[in-house]
Structures are given as C-alpha cells and as structure tokens.
Amino acid sequence: MSTITFSTGGMMVAVMALTTYFIRVTPLALFNKKLESQWIKDFMYYIPFCVLSAMTFPDVLFSTKSLTSGIIATVVALLLSWRKHSLVTVALAAVIAAVIVELAMPYILAW
C-alpha cells in the first residue's frame, strides 16, 4: 500500500530534484575558471567515498530481516568487492546469501 504519493511526497521530491540540478547547473552556467586550491580538490576527491561509507555503515547490518543474515551478506559483499567483482554481481550475491540464511534459519534453530 503506497503511503507516499505525489500529493504527500511531491514537494519533498521537488526539493530533492531542484537541489541536485542546482549543483550541476551552477558551474556550467556561471564559471569559466580552473580550480586552484589543492585542499578543495583533495576534499572533493575524498567526499564520495566518505559519503557512501557513512551511509552504508552500520545500517547495512540491519537492512535484512535479521542481524545474522545482514552480517553474513555484508561479509559476502566485502569479499566479492575485494576481489573486484562488478556492482551487480556483488549486490545479487549478497541478496542471495541473505535469502539463503533466512530460509535456513528455522531449520538451524530447530536443530
């Protein structure tokens, strides 16, 4: 059942879209210079990795039905991405691992 529709969430979605467009259009529309500051360049270099890791941890562990499957799927994802597998492979393998753990859980607990 959808609880967030155009009428309830449309305004927030518009805010999001406008902010994103604002970031992209400002330099292209206004600037014509080269970026000089090394600090800013370095900061910009680190930012994507920092953002993604702060978004992922610790929340990833709680993103499935149980903590056990969350931890196991996270380990699977870490190993596969360490071996440089593609985004889609890593994501699919983690989902499959989580589903298997969830399916096996009742049996393991009963045993």
């Binding site: 990795f49 990833v60 499957s69 889609v88």
Partner: peptide, 24 residues
C-alpha cells in the same frame, strides 16, 4: 516476501562494491 525483505541490502552492497576497490 522473503526476497523483498532482503532486497534492501542490495543498495548497500553496491556502495560496498564502490568503496572497497579504491580503498584497497
């Protein structure tokens, strides 16, 4: 439903796949 409940982790794992190679 069981797959739906586990799909949420897909996004985080894509993030992991983006972070780990450059971090190593």
């Amino acid at each position: 439903p069981i797959i739906q409940a586990c799909m949420g982790i897909a996004l985080y794992c894509m993030f992991i796949a983006l972070i780990v190679p450059p971090a190593t």
